[in-house]
């Protein structure tokens, strides 16, 4: 197969349907080609990230250590003990997804090892869903790598249009894109078609437009840690709608355009500068003062 430059989701879908293959097939061949390596060498690099994500879940589940600021770090353990007595309304996969999301996010803020996906602040949204569902449904490592490549391809196409930095486009570009990537990974994992995968991306992203980045004390803690758990679940909603052939009436490329425009229109005070929103609430200001001491 010859290399074909893909810069929009329309290009990607067109190529998938033309060649009758799925997203990761096209993506892995293109990436290997660009880096001048073999496809299996490329997959080995992806496997390294997947394995590091699995390790982050394991270490996160074991720890209760607080972050450097002392504001966060023990919520995963709270959730674990809650689920040991009573089960989640939505069943064990749901329990695992939210528990793993907090485990990885808390591991991040206590300076543990994680995989930025796409950023460190949004590092739990893709792996929590990917790993929890794969464990519960006994999905092979090969299929998990396929799904992670799919997620990476989604992030790549978005990032070549909009910077995935909270300071540039707000949290919609970090946790929002992570949730869209996670929806894509899950749809791939559950056997969705390229069209369904891209609908999942559009649906997830569309419902997070305008998400602000207003972290308390300027740290990747409040609201970032818990937001990872919320947006992991958000990805599942997008995936299920897409698998049911619910279409996003606004095509995914146009959703990305809307996100770019929204990011530009958002006040810089709500883009990682901690000058407004949650970061300037009474309690946040009090926390900031006590940290300075």
């Amino acid at each position: 197969m010859k290399y074909k430059s893909i810069s929009t989701f329309a290009d990607l879908l067109g190529e998938c349907e033309l060649q009758e293959v799925t997203i990761f097939d096209i993506a892995q061949k293109n990436e290997a080609n660009l880096d001048d390596i073999k496809v299996n060498e490329f997959r080995k690099i992806v496997k390294k990230s997947l394995n590091a994500m699995q390790d982050a879940v394991k270490s996160g589940l074991k720890s209760k250590e607080m972050s450097l600021s002392g504001m966060c770090g023990d919520d995963c353990s709270r959730l674990k003990s809650f689920y040991s007595d009573s089960h989640a309304l939505f069943g064990t996969i749901f329990e695992k997804i939210v528990t793993y999301a907090l485990a990885i996010s808390e591991e991040n803020l206590r300076m543990g090892k994680i995989v930025a996906c796409p950023t460190a602040g949004s590092c739990a949204i893709v792996p929590s869903v990917l790993i929890a569902v794969s464990e519960e449904k006994n999905i092979s490592e090969k299929s998990q790598i396929d799904a992670l490549i799919t997620a990476g391809e989604i992030g790549r196409i978005v990032s070549n249009k909009v910077s995935l930095a909270g300071a540039v486009a707000g949290c919609q570009a970090e946790c929002g894109v992570a949730s869209a990537m996670s929806a894509a990974a899950l749809t791939q994992l559950l056997g969705g078609t390229p069209r369904q995968i891209l609908n999942a991306v559009a649906l997830a992203l569309k419902n997070l437009l305008g998400l602000t980045c207003d972290p308390v004390c300027g740290l990747v803690e409040i609201p970032c840690v818990k937001r990872n758990a919320f947006l992991a679940v958000h990805a599942v909603t997008a995936c299920e709608l897409a698998l049911a052939n619910v279409e996003s009436k606004i095509p995914v490329d146009e959703v990305v355009d809307a996100m770019e425009q929204t990011g530009k229109l958002m006040s810089p005070m709500l883009k990682e500068s901690s000058q407004a929103g949650l970061a300037k609430t009474k309690t946040a200001v009090r926390l900031e003062k006590s940290l300075r001491k």
Binding site: L34, R110, V115, A116, N160
Partner: peptide
């Protein structure tokens, strides 16, 4: 320089911030 898939699903790093810690 355009991003690659590997840029999106990496680096493996100690947290909590890509700009403030890994950077």
């Amino acid at each position: 320089r355009q991003s690659s898939i590997i840029d999106i699903i990496s680096p493996i790093m100690v947290g909590p911030s890509s700009s403030h810690t890994a950077g």
